[in-house]
Structure formats: C-alpha cells, structure tokens
Simulated scan of single mutants.
Amino acid sequence: MAEPTLSDAPPDPQRLALAWRIAPASLAFILDVRAISRRDRDLIDSLLFATIVSSNVAPLIQDPGLQLTYAGLDSPLPDDARRPVSINAVAQSMRVPFETARRRIRAMARDGLIELTERGAIIPRSVLARPDFIEGVVLRHARVGRFYRELRALGALSPVIGAPPSVNEAPVLVTNRQAWAYILRMADEVITLTGDPMGGLILMEMLQLNIENMDPDELAAWAGAPHVLGRPARTAAFAAALGLSPETTRRYVMSLAEAGFCVRSKAGARAILPPDKRPALERMVLDNLANVQRMFARLGQLGVLAAFDVETPAAAASA
C-alpha cells in the first residue's frame, strides 16, 4: 500500500476555517477590481488586457529592486523593458480559443490600446499614462489597502518583520502588479473549474450574492448545502454588475445549470458544484488563502504595507 503524500493529507482544520473566513472578502476584492478595470470594454477584453500587462512586467515582479524603481505613477517601466507576449500564450492562459484571442487583441490594437510586434503584444507606456488608466491604478491601489485592513481584522496576515522603507511616492504600480498577479492566478482556477472565462465570472457574481452578509458560521453551513442555504440571485442583479444584457446572462446561467454549477428557481439562481467538482472547492479556498498571504507578504517585504498602516482613519474609510 502506497504511503500517503502531502497532498493526500487532510488540511489543518484551523487553516481551513481561516480560508473559509476570508473567502467572502477575497471574492468581493476580485469582483471590485474587475469592476474598476472594465471601463468601456467587455469582461473578456479586460482579462486579455490584464494578462498582457502582467506578462509584459513579469520579469520586474521577480526583482525587488526594480519593483521599487518602477513603483509610482511618475516612474512606469520603459517600453523597451516590457516583455512581449504571444497571442497564443495569452489565449492559453485565459482558456479561450486562439481565434477569439487574436480577433479581440487585434481590435484593441486598432483602438490604440495594444502594440503588436514581431515578438508579441505589449501595452505601451503611452496607454498606461492615459487619465482613465491612471484613475484605475489609483482606485485599485486604494482597494488593495482596504483588502489589507479587512484581512488583518480577520487575523489572516502575519506581521512582516524588517520591511525596508518604501519609495517616497505612493507605490501604486507595485500594488497593482501584485494584485493582478493574485487575481489572474485565482481566475485561472475558476476558469479551469468551469471551462469558460465568462461563465466563471458570472458564477463568481452569483456566488457573491448567494453568500452576501453571511457570518463565518453561516458560511460554513452554506458550504455543506449551497442549494438550500444560498440566497437566490436574480439574473438582472448580476447582469447589471457585469455590464451584460439579461438575455446574454440568462444563456450563460442556463449553461452553468446544465453543467451542474447552479440551480435555478423562480426566486433566482444558487451557485453549487457538480459532485465530481466538490473536492476542488476546498482546494480552491485553501489556495486562495495561500495566494492572499503570498501577495501581502511580498508587499510587506517591499515596505508597501507601512503606508497602509499609517493612513488616517478618514483616508482608510474612503479607500
């Protein structure tokens, strides 16, 4: 008989409880960043765009010195330091057909949002310096700060010892890079689970409404019977949040129901998991906890969290 591996071992009950406790705050953070970043483009374009930006600056994220050199709005990464990414790599990352990714990326290139080169796609500094993009960077930075305070209140973060001082200007680009790395990592898990980016996002919106305002005990009970304890979500509510028509949203909800990811009734839809996907739910909430802690540990090591710690109550409340 084979010996059990680490992955076979049951999770630590306290860590699993903590993972469930932070799950609603994490989901709200991901969906808020998605809303901030949507602008006037649809959700798939927004995710493709974010994937290209993250790929362009991937080498930067691995170097703490460069992270702080290119930390503020006045010091973005030069175009010649951005790493181009192929359309095929973007399509594979987002689990969308190559032709879909190529069509959408080329359309964004025609609109001046993306530069296509022989080596791949980049988002140039000139685009990232536009007022609408800067507004999104600042709003996402503030949302990271609020997420940080929420997680500290939930006891999910350990103090970072010996963090160096941060840069003089607000390190908004650092927080944005780390936030997108976290969000795309978790989006990949949801897309892997559902097999479709839009379906995954609709399922997340539905789930947020199903568990809205639940306390930790209610959330733990919900996980055992989501089809009974989830609060029904009407299609119109998450269609509006996603900027989709009710008809388009309804088609996706019907597909999710056929795949076993939700149940529908006159009162609304409740997110569930197909029986063969249930083990993935526990793994995902534990992965989310690890990814959240990794993100804030890196921000702490870069001295970024010090600015959030010293914010005035008024500034923190407005974030």
Rank of each mutant, 00 (worst) to 15 (best):
T249I: 05
M214Y: 12
P164E: 10
A267R: 13
A71W: 13
S54I: 03
E115W: 15
A107N: 12
A259T: 02
V144P: 10
A170C: 03
R294D: 15
I202C: 05
L151Y: 02
Y70L: 07
G300F: 01
V174P: 14
T235V: 15
D45H: 10
S158Y: 03
V33R: 07
P275Y: 09
T69E: 12
S55T: 03
V90G: 08
A81E: 12
N176K: 03
E282P: 01
L244H: 11
R119H: 11
Q178E: 15
V53K: 05
R38L: 15
A71N: 07
L209K: 00
Q208Y: 07
D79S: 07
L273N: 01
V263T: 12
R264E: 11
I36S: 07
R39S: 13
A307E: 13
W180Y: 14
R283W: 08
A23M: 07
V285D: 06
T117F: 07
L77Y: 07
N88P: 00
L77T: 13
P246S: 13
M186F: 14
Q293S: 09
L302E: 05
L113T: 01
A239L: 06
I211F: 03
R15D: 01
T194L: 11
D40S: 12
Y252S: 00
E3P: 09
A9K: 10
A239F: 02
L193T: 07
M1G: 13
E150H: 09
R294E: 15
Q92A: 10
Q208D: 09
L73M: 12
P246E: 14
P216N: 08
